[in-house]
Structure formats: C-alpha cells, structure tokens
Design a protein around this nucleic acid. Structure first.
Length: 348
DNA sequence: TCTATTTGACCCCG
DNA sequence: CGGGGTCAAATAGA
C-alpha cells in the first residue's frame, strides 16, 4: 500500500509538473520544486524497495545512478566502508573490534560559477588529518575529523572525495556522530569560518583548482550502503525532509509554493524536525537567498545509527555559506533528498 | 605562540 | 604485499 500510495503521489506530481510547464509562471522555482517532490518520491520508493529486498545488492542502484554517484566511487564501492569506524565508546581506538558506527554518504555538487569551492560546510568544525591518493581515483581523498575530538571526545569523521567524472561533485562520507557541542546543538553556527575555506581549498586547490566551482548547485544523492546487514536497515526510519526543508525553513523565500501539506509525504517531511530542531540555526542559513535557487543550500543529513553499520547517504549541500548540519535523533536516519538525483534538468 | 594543514611514515587488514 | 586510514613531525598562517 505504501508503495502504491507513493506511486500515486508521484503521478500526481508529474501531472502537476506537466501542467506547470504549460502555464508559464513567474516562479521559476516551480518546476524545480516539483522535480524535488518527484525526487523525494523516487527516493522513498527506492528505500522501500531496498528494505524489501534488503538482501544484498545494492539497493540503491537506481537511485544513485540518477544521482550520479559514481559507481565506482570508492566510497560506495568499497565493500566495507563501514568497518572503519572508530569506537566511539571507548575513546581509544585500540579496540580491535570496531564497533560500527553509523556512516552515510553525501554527495555535494558545486557548480562552478564562482569559484569557490568545494564542498562546503556542513556546519561542523573539521580538522584535516590526512589525504591520500586513492587507487583508481583521479583526485585524492581527504580525511577530516571533528575539531573537538580531544576536547569533547567527538569522534565524528568525514572523508571527502572528488568525483572523477564530475569534478564538481564531491562525495562525502560521514562516520560517527557528533557528540561535540556543535553536534548536539546541532547547529551552532559554525564557529570557525575558516574551515569552510579550507575544506575547499584542500581538495580543490591542490588538484586543480576546483575552485572554480561555485556554489550553487548541488545535488544530493542518497545512497545507501548495503554493507550492512539487512536488518539494520530496516530498522531505520527514513525521513526525508529534504527538499522541503530547505524551503520550509526559509519559508519566506521564494519557494513558497511549496506545498507541504498536501501529501502525506510532504507532510511527513515537514514533521521532521530535522531542519530546525533547534531553531537557532535557522539563522544561519547563509543567506536568504541561499535557497534553492542558486546558492547553495544546505542539507543535512544525518543519521545515526546504532551500532550497526549502516550507511546512509544523504545529501549535503554545499555552499559557501555555513551551514549547519543537524543532528538529531539518533534513532532515525534522515535523509535529505534534497535533490535526489542529479536530474539534469534541475540543475542548471 | 598557538592552531591548522601538509605529507611521509606507519598500521591494519584483506 | 598493497591499499586505505591514521598518526605525527614539519610547516604554514594568524
């Protein structure tokens, strides 16, 4: 039933899309918004299917493909990205058995307009601790850990890998949950502005200035890692706030048209607090404009997971502006569908 | 002087 | 043995 309901909603959204195309509107965003709605449905369906057949293979397949996750992206590809996590529990890494920590991937696309950057902030403060050339990858992978690892025992880490095929896309794999104040609050403003830049610089600069990339567009993709044992997955509740949230948060912004209420689906989204759980962050949004249109926006994602390894990917977006990530519930995984796939249309 | 990044070495694991 | 992830000394920047 859920599936059929989703399909139905998707169909309606498609009709709306077609209808919108017939009638020019002042809002350019409309089409984009509709596309996002569709993407959310697609993701929901994918997830649903995935859970049903969580067995083994990648569930995500379809979804991601659209997104453009590089199939080969090391991250996703690896069979066991999960393994790596570090033990949170014990601060000491030594334990041989690593407990799996939740991990999820985000893809961020930066369009190059401006030149800045690479992937951006997700609102947390990260410290780079390594960079490696990855076999088969054109660009090196950068490793970051939470700046507050020592001071607050926050063991969250992330890896940033620029996509070979599309240098404007960065695959970001997050591992572990933030236990630092930023994480808890979810969203404190990123205190350190520097980080943003750095992030970008690193990856980009070295290898080719990516800096060209600007901010603006991103795509997010959701990917799920299969690695996990199927069970876990099922466990997660997925919520997709994504798209909506960007909008919702900023309500005023242009995007208004966003129909949150209608669908159950959307409705659910709205529920998710993800977005602004703590409110304060809302302020952060970079700029008012930062919404969907052009600038970056932000997405967050989070997931938390229990001990099982899981990976979920969500999207992140990047923009220069600081954006907070929201962490919230651990139990749930949240995914932002922001834009699900890179639908070419959408972008640009 | 302090903090963050760079980068080669080291370690673990398949 | 080699790849991927992390460490940590050296270095850069504020």
């Amino acid at each position: 039933m859920l599936t059929s309901e989703l399909i139905q909603g998707m169909e309606v959204a498609r009709k709306l899309k077609a209808d919108l195309r017939r009638t020019p509107s002042p809002f350019d965003n409309r089409d984009l918004l509709v596309q996002r709605i569709l993407s959310s449905y697609e993701k929901a369906l994918l997830i649903l299917r995935w859970n049903e057949s969580n067995s083994k293979s990648q569930p995500v397949g379809t979804a991601t493909e659209g997104a453009g996750l590089s199939p080969e992206s090391p991250i996703s590809a690896n069979g066991s990205p999960l393994r790596d996590d570090i033990d949170h529990h014990e601060h000491k890494p030594e334990s041989k058995k690593r407990k799996s920590v939740a991990s999820w991937m985000d893809q961020v696309r930066v369009s190059s307009e401006t030149g800045l950057v690479g992937p951006q902030d997700d609102g947390y403060s990260w410290r780079k601790y390594g960079q490696k050339d990855i076999l088969g990858a054109k660009y090196p992978r950068s490793y970051y850990r939470c700046t507050y690892r020592n001071s607050q025992n926050c063991w969250a880490t992330k890896q940033v890998q620029r996509s070979d095929e599309d240098p404007t896309i960065f695959d970001i794999t997050y591992r572990g949950k933030h236990t630092c104040s930023l994480g808890n609050n979810a969203l404190l403003p990123p205190n350190s502005p520097h980080q943003h830049e750095k992030l970008d610089n690193n990856d980009d600069n070295r290898h080719g200035q990516s800096s060209q990339e600007g901010l603006p567009t991103f795509t997010n993709i959701l990917s799920v890692d299969n690695n996990d044992p199927g069970d876990t997955q099922t466990a997660y509740p997925f919520t997709f706030p994504s798209t909506s949230f960007g909008c919702s948060a900023q309500e005023n912004h242009t995007l208004l048209p966003f129909p949150l209420d209608n669908d159950s689906f959307l409705g659910s989204l709205s529920q998710t607090n993800l977005f602004f759980p703590t409110t304060p962050e809302s302020n952060y949004f970079p700029s008012p404009s930062f919404q969907i249109n052009k600038f970056g926006w932000i997405n967050n994602k989070q997931c938390s997971e229990s001990d099982i390894t899981d990976i979920i990917s969500a999207n992140t977006s990047s923009t220069n502006s600081p954006i907070p990530d929201f962490d919230f519930s651990l139990d749930q995984v949240e995914i932002d569908p922001y834009f699900p796939f890179d639908a070419p249309d959408l972008l640009s």
